[in-house]
Design a binder for these strands. Structure first.
Lengths: 227, 227
DNA sequence: TAAAATTTTTAGGCAAAACTAAATAATTTT
DNA sequence: AAAATTATTTAGTTTTGCCTAAAAATTTTA
């Protein structure tokens, strides 16, 4: 429908709209996309003609509803593929981006829906970023960090932020991955480090670590807690 | 490394070299790729410069070893993705081609190798076509049709040729799919139809049907036969 | 608020990959 | 073997998406 380049612009505009208060300028886009400002101007005119963006010369750009929904569709694909690569194909979190960047442009409604289904309709990708559903709606609950919970909570790991390779190795070593069950045994007050149970082992996690692990409540164990 | 368009030319040349005795001409290529002859000439010059093909004006084209190995790499990716779509994502055999056509151009060594591994290193795609290995070598054993076997043989379905949608429905109905176990109970001499066992049911297959089902011997059951 | 600095746009090019129309080479026919 | 037909190549355009350099608009600063 749209070219890869056009899709990359839409995605970049979406991300810049999210992350910055002020509007999206030509220069911000050119930096994000590693191209020259002149190329950006040209593309913005083309996208405006296609009604994907609102563009006023010299005053920046914003997505139309049409453009936003297309951007969300690409982000959905990107994050589902990232999930697939980590979950099924043994990719590390720091290896997925480049490949997902290519896979996100594959055009096939059926492919995306079946992949989503195959993966169990995940709500967050391996970096902890939310995955929009088929209608372009983001999951309503926010990503929460392990550090926000308290003793007794049992949680499922749903993502890990900005994994440095040493953090990654650490998690690997202790068998902490996507969908791993973690329960909080105790918390040290003075440094907020946590003693958690993973499988049959107890592991000590620093505050830094618990802030970089995204989790979801384990619904099953909640029922058990009440019983 | 090479553009999608260049890759499509390499693949087309490979297929035409395989299927026809005589060399590959500009017009054959233009028909295969649905483009004009003039465009083909232009591209052949470019591919020749890159040492991917041997091209002599007015006398057609052939792949260099370098070109052939790229072509096989693309075919490998195409067929692995087809297998994935059918096996994991509930695609029918007649729906996979278009999507695999896109997926085959994704560049990532790791992706291909991990996908191959994830799928259990299949030798044939859902259409019964052989999948080259990472070194570009095709499986040495040929695809065999169910019709070539005899009473008592137990076989695993590995592909289905040119599935018309009614043939497809028929197979679906009788729970015959990729990797389904089929054993031959009896063969009618006069029309070569077969009575086969699939799961707990016995099914009658016409000669036409058995000729369109590709199978492999089931190694496990061979051992049992000896015991 | 006018000058200076910065940002953005315009103008003019380039490469890839397609196209049409015209020219040329190869093959077939007579 | 020359003429006719067919296949292939060349030449000249188009579109997409990038580039540089120059011009114009906006913003900052003095």
């Amino acid at each position: 429908m749209y070219s890869q380049s056009e899709e990359n612009y839409l995605k970049a505009i979406y991300h810049l709209e999210e992350s910055s208060e002020k509007g999206v300028s030509t220069s911000k886009l050119s930096e994000e996309l590693q191209t020259k400002a002149a190329s950006v101007t040209e593309m913005l005119k083309r996208l405006a003609e296609k009604k994907l963006v609102n563009y006023r010369k010299y005053y920046g750009v914003s997505l139309t509803p049409e453009g936003k929904s297309w951007a969300l569709a690409i982000i959905r694909k990107h994050r589902l593929w990232e999930y697939f690569l980590v979950e099924c194909l043994n990719f590390n979190w720091d290896e997925v981006h480049e490949v997902a960047e290519q896979l996100e442009h594959i055009q096939s409604k059926k492919l995306v829906e079946e992949l989503d289904c195959f993966l169990g309709r995940p709500s967050f990708d391996p970096h902890g970023d939310p995955i929009p559903n088929a209608a372009g709606v983001l999951p309503e609950f926010k990503k929460r960090r392990l550090s926000e919970f308290k003793v007794g909570d049992t949680l499922i790991c749903k993502g890990f932020s900005d994994a440095s390779s040493s953090f990654l190795q650490f998690l690997d070593q202790h068998k902490i991955g996507l969908n791993t069950l973690v329960s909080i045994k105790s918390i040290q007050e003075f440094d907020e480090s946590m003693l958690v149970k993973v499988g049959n082992n107890e592991i000590m996690l620093s505050k830094t670590a618990t802030q970089n692990i995204f989790v979801e409540r384990n619904k099953e164990s909640k029922i058990k807690e009440r019983a």
